[in-house]
């Protein structure tokens, strides 16, 4: 890797600082576009709080960037099932996110029983499940079970999609 790339990789937190700055700027710009209709009764108006929040975010972004450039580093969160110190396993995370997006696209189209099955099955696969048949059966049972559970138990009608009329 080029030295610049290495330098940036060690300071990926700068990306988060940039995100903070962007959100802060967005809040400020949005607030600037607001009207102040009731100057008499609402002395503060709708703008003041967004201005404070936006400024807070910008200040945090700058301070965080300075902190990182001066060698400060965040402490990633620890947990019971976490092997701390390992790099992020993108081979797990990316498929998980893709399966999640697939569900967003399909849920209204094909219905929850099918998209939910894909969501669970895909997630198990991404997380390293290799017992395909058992995993599949559990997925179908969960998706169909929650469909009926919500329908009968809570009165929430999840989309049946393609299986409309069948279920």
């Amino acid at each position: 890797m080029k030295p610049v790339a290495v330098w940036l990789k060690d300071r990926s937190e700068l990306g988060f600082a940039a995100l903070l700055g962007a959100v802060g700027a967005m809040v400020l710009v949005d607030a600037a576009g607001l009207n102040v209709p009731y100057q008499q009764s609402d002395g503060l108006g709708p703008k003041t709080v967004p201005y404070i929040v936006g400024t807070l975010l910008l200040v945090c972004a700058v301070l965080l960037a300075v902190n990182i450039l001066r060698g400060g580093a965040a402490e990633p969160e620890d947990g019971e099932d976490i092997e701390i110190g390992t790099p992020i396993d993108w081979k797990v995370v990316v498929p998980l996110v893709l399966v999640f997006i697939l569900n967003i696209l399909f849920i209204d189209l094909v219905g929850w029983p099918i998209s939910g099955t894909i969501l669970f099955w895909g997630s198990v696969l991404a997380l390293g499940g290799r017992n395909y048949i058992r995993d599949g059966l559990i997925s179908v049972a969960l998706a169909v079970g929650t469909f009926y559970g919500f329908y009968l138990g809570l009165g929430i009608h999840l989309p049946a999609g393609l299986l409309k009329g069948v279920l």
């Binding site: 998980l96 999640f100 569900n103 198990v124 997380l127 390293g128 499940g129 995993d135 559990i138 929650t146």
Partner: peptide, 16 residues
């Protein structure tokens, strides 16, 4: 409990 079921389950129920 196999971990793949636990975390797939969290994602599944969160979505639901």
């Amino acid at each position: 409990l196999p971990r793949q079921y636990l975390y797939a389950g969290i994602l599944f129920f969160a979505t639901l």
